[in-house]
Structures are given as C-alpha cells and as structure tokens.
Design a protein around this nucleic acid. Structure first.
Lengths: 121, 121
DNA sequence: TGCTGATATCCATGCCTGTCAATATTGATG
DNA sequence: CATCAATATTGACAGGCATGGATATCAGCA
C-alpha cells in the first residue's frame, strides 16, 4: 500500500485530541528520537538555515569537531526517518530538510492551551 | 488577532533562523529524546487528552501492557525534562503536561516553508 | 589508467537505555 | 500499630547507540 500513514501528516492531530495508536507512536517516536541528539539537532538547524535551504556534508562537518564518519552517520539517521533528503551533485552531497515532516511533528506538539484547564467546557 | 501564540514567539527561534548553539541544542535534544520513545509519546498523549488535563499513574498503567515500574520510569524521564509535572493527592499521583514546554518544541520545528526555497528576498 | 578529494560503509568499543523483579516508600484505614 | 493499595526506587540484564579508525565507493581530472 502506498498510503501508509500520510493522512496524519496533513493535519497532524494535536497530541491531546485522542491517544496515539501504537503504530503512529512508533513512527513519530522514531523522528523525535532522531532529533534527540544535540549534534543531529544542530545539523537540522544548520541545513534548514543554510543559504538556499541546503548544505553539503563538508559545510556540516566543518561546524563540528567530530570525525567525518560520525557526521555521515548522523546524516543517515536523519535521512532514514524522513527529516532530511540528499542529492548528489558532482563530488558533493547536498542535504535539505523535509518541511512537511517538521510540520507534522510541530503540529503534533501544538497542544491547545485550553485543554490543560478544561475539556468539555 | 485574539489571544493567540504570544509566548511562543519568545520561547524559541525557529530552527532555520540561526544555527543552534551547542548549549541550546543539548537542552532541546534532551526533551526530544524523551519524546523519542513510543511509550513515552503515548503517555504524553494520554495525559494531555485526559479529562481535566491530568491522569493518575493507574490510568496510564492500564493503557499499556508494561510493568508498573516501567511506567514509573518513563514518567520520571518525562518529568525530568520538564514535559510533565506531578501532584500527589491522597494515594494517587496525577500527572499533567507542561504546555509551555510543548509549545517551545513545537515552535522550534515550525520552520517557515519559504525558507527551504529562498531565504531572504 | 591512476590519482586525489568527498562521502559512505564496516567494525569495534564503551556508554546509555528500556525492561522487569524485588523492595522501599507513602498514604489511607482499621 | 498493622495492613493494604498506589507509586517510586534499586539492581540487573540485554539491546541500542554515539563515536572514530580503517576502508570502500564515487566523481573529477591528468
């Protein structure tokens, strides 16, 4: 099936609406876990804020004091969960963020403030 | 405009604005890591969506097929990173979400779509 | 073809984490 | 005080993960 879990991404239900199913939770948790590392969070930040919305691996590597395989590993993690995409041009590989994926996670956490106080009015 | 997101604007800059400092990244990554587990994500969802915006440990435990210490451990993780608070009433402990903390993370991921295409016209 | 630079993969290692059984703590109640 | 129910803590174990060195792949170039 192509239409796996795409309905969710469109209008991502706020966390408080209804309990997350286990399946949804697994998929979303994978993305959050990928963001749950300072290096990866900074990588996403660097890529998202880079000129043209993309950055090559060398740009990213220069921003850290980590070995190149380590950066490559983190990029793979972010790519595997759908937060980054990559494109090769000549010798360089350029990464860019997937805005829909970020928006999905953002919408999920955007819990209406009223919910904490009252629900049914 | 009504009483919409005002604190959000000061809570944190969108990811794309400028590269995250290492310190900020560490703090934010801790929160994302806490959400990076399916059980914990569902716990937050259950608490946020529960009647009155709070849920006792027994409510949460019943929603999983995990041992009680495991749930207690996850609750502690979420509390330690500031995503949940707890209050003891009689024999029961009630947990509720911290909306400001969720809003902070949500705002961080709310990257403007235009940014991926062009930065500053 | 061979060489060089850029990036990815493989492998090993030490640390971190999710899980649960056992136990401790806390509060209510008899 | 004794006991029970709810929750937290401890200790242990298996699996996961971040890191880096060595190495492979890939693209351009002479």
């Amino acid at each position: 099936m192509l239409m796996d879990a795409l309905k969710v991404s469109e209008c991502g239900p706020p966390l408080a609406r209804r309990p997350l199913g286990e399946g949804q939770a697994v998929g979303l948790a994978r993305a959050f876990k990928a963001l749950g590392d300072p290096v990866r969070l900074r990588i996403v930040s660097i890529v998202a804020g880079h000129q043209g919305g993309e950055a090559c691996v060398c740009d990213i590597t220069d921003a850290f004091e980590l070995a190149q395989p380590t950066i490559s590993h983190h990029l793979k993690v972010l790519k595997d969960v759908g937060l980054l995409t990559s494109e090769r041009r000549a010798s360089w590989v350029y990464y860019r963020v997937v805005p829909e994926r970020l928006a999905e996670l953002s919408a999920l956490l955007a819990v209406p403030a009223e919910n904490s106080a009252e629900v049914a009015g």
